[in-house]
Design a protein around this nucleic acid. Structure first.
Lengths: 202, 202, 202, 202
DNA sequence: CACTAAGCGAGACGGTACGTCCCGTCTTTCC
DNA sequence: GGAAAGACGGGACGTACCGTCTCGCTTAGTG
């Protein structure tokens, strides 16, 4: 279990028990509901406290700002389970994973990651947290998976897993933020094909 | 050759104009200096007004919020000139352009676009403005250039220029924001190579 | 010769023509209408200018502030003619004059003098103007009239006209401002009787 | 039964209370000092807050505007104690009281009441407050005292206490505001004599 | 099994920035 | 060439949240 990580701030100093996890959960739920309802910018510690039926101090005791709350709520939402499910083929399972991610980004997770990623541009601590708790874990899994792909001779032997990740996944974030078009499965397929086959004439 | 022109300028220097572009410029300059100095989040309309020696109302009369100011300052900075300079080869000139962009993103422009893109996630109007005044013009030029590349048989005939753009450029934005590594020329080359040659084993 | 005094700032009735008296009048009219409509506190130079169809500068060129405008409009309203009309008896004509004044104070003049007197508490120049153009002229006429009353043996020989004025008229201003009761003719009569006959048991 | 008592005690005893009266007092003091120093018109909520070392919201939470603050500061200043001290004779104690009032009006209280009375002309709520917390309490005491005077046969039996008040006291307010002369003891005596003995030839 | 210490809701507090209103000045443009 | 129109620098307004700080109440662990 990973409860220790989540309660890092709360439990650390005092030897005592984690402060009521029910309150914790109520705050996170309220934060997520509100951020989806009124948007991150309009989100207010007051509003979260009110919706959670909690005093403001109870929140400040646990998180330094609203971004940290949404951050924690976000990482609690996403299933840290398997990223790449096996499909017909190795390559196909990558495409599938990309589609799954796009689907998530089309929904609530997209709204949350959009807000977090944006806020992280102004808040180095949030940027670090986002990197450590969202980006890097996934990149590490992807790197492992792509190394396997290299061994399986699906990827070129000179392909750098880090570059593979960026070429395949950066467009998804790009479209999520830029609004140059829908984050549809068709778009995913297009990116996947172009990236895998390359852009040059053979 | 010079006397006539310069006299006209000297005359203009003394008097003000309605919606004086000098004031406009003073505000934009102040905004850029401040955003680079103290960061977009700490930027304040008051501070801009003070630094520009201007009343707050003069600012509010022109822009709805600080993001719009920085937006305008940003688009005024960027040279709307040629995107793709001719290099040794067609493909090489793309790589060159990508490097040029990365270089810009490593500097002040990077700080500005980072802030604007982030703020745009919370502000649909800014998002639209950013798309119309920054993203789309460049995409349109790129599309034209890439269509030419298809005619020149550099790109595969089935390559969609929109997809080409995303695969090549999304990683630059991604790294700008994610902080997964430096936006170095080496990184650009890596992305360029992977994207052009494709990820798959031949 | 005192005509110059009243219009000192606004006109030079003699030589060059007064700056368009039509505009002058339009502004004064607009000011009075507005002050009665929305109150002196809410009155704005902008609003006066707009209602008079006039630029703000045109107003500032003539008066230093809104109080001065209302002041001038007020003194222009009141007929500087005879204060004390002859009635059945000398004393009766005083009572009549007091009633006339009360009646005026119940109407628009009351609203104006109330505002001016109040504003004058904060504005020494307005206080001076009010004293010179409203209070003192009337006091001088009253003093003359009351001196006549002393010669006629209506008033006690040891009665000081200045004190007579205050005892008779101060209650009118008092009630105008305090709201302790209506400024009715009955009230005037009551004050008149008490003041004339005295409060003491005979 | 016992718990209630003890609770009440505990609440009262503890130093800090909600709506701390110390802060209240600091604000009122700051307001009075400032209004006497720079005048009511130049008085600013900001300045009061700064001088009192208090946030603006703390002020806005308690009073709707600066007039209300000065109002409360004013009524807190005035000793609500006995108005009429016994002098050699009944009538003499009235004259004494008038002199006391004039003396107060020559000092800080005069500046305050002048501002409040003026502002009340523009602000019905303040007018009501001023009437209820300053004017009427004093009038009620005066009425009681004057009724006693009628029983003592000092005043005419047909004298209306309300009219007595106005004839005696209105001139004090009048001179306070009009600046037609000093609010000296000599002036008070003059008014007193004229009002008591009456203006008419016997 | 009471008692005490903590966590908690509630919300007042000192601040900062906001966006608005109006001031009084100054410039441009039109009639 | 004077007036309307309105932009300008400035200052105060009243509001919204911030993050900190008491207040009593509730409650749970200890003695």
């Amino acid at each position: 279990m990973k409860s220790g990580e989540q309660q890092a701030k709360a439990t650390a100093a005092s030897g005592g028990r984690p402060r009521s996890p029910r309150i914790q959960q109520a705050i996170l739920n309220a934060a997520v509901e509100l951020v989806l309802e009124i948007g991150f910018k309009s989100l207010t510690i007051d509003a979260i406290a009110a919706k959670a039926g909690v005093g403001r101090m109870t929140i400040y005791r646990r998180w330094p700002n609203k971004a940290a709350i949404v951050m924690e709520a976000f990482v609690a939402r996403v299933d840290p389970g398997t990223l790449f499910l096996s499909a017909k083929s190795y390559a196909e399972s990558i495409r599938l994973q990309m589609r799954t991610m796009a689907k998530a980004f089309r929904g609530k997770d997209g709204a949350l990651i959009r807000a977090l990623l944006a806020e992280a541009q102004f808040d180095p601590e949030l940027a670090t947290a986002l990197r450590e708790r969202w980006t890097m874990p996934r990149r590490r899994m992807a790197i492992a998976y792509f190394e396997e792909g290299k061994r399986k001779r699906v990827f070129r032997p000179d392909a750098d897993p880090n570059a593979i990740i960026d070429v395949l996944y950066a467009p998804i974030y790009y479209r999520l933020q830029m609004g140059t078009g829908p984050l549809s499965d068709a778009y995913i397929d297009e990116i996947f094909e172009h990236a895998m086959k390359g852009l040059m004439k053979a």
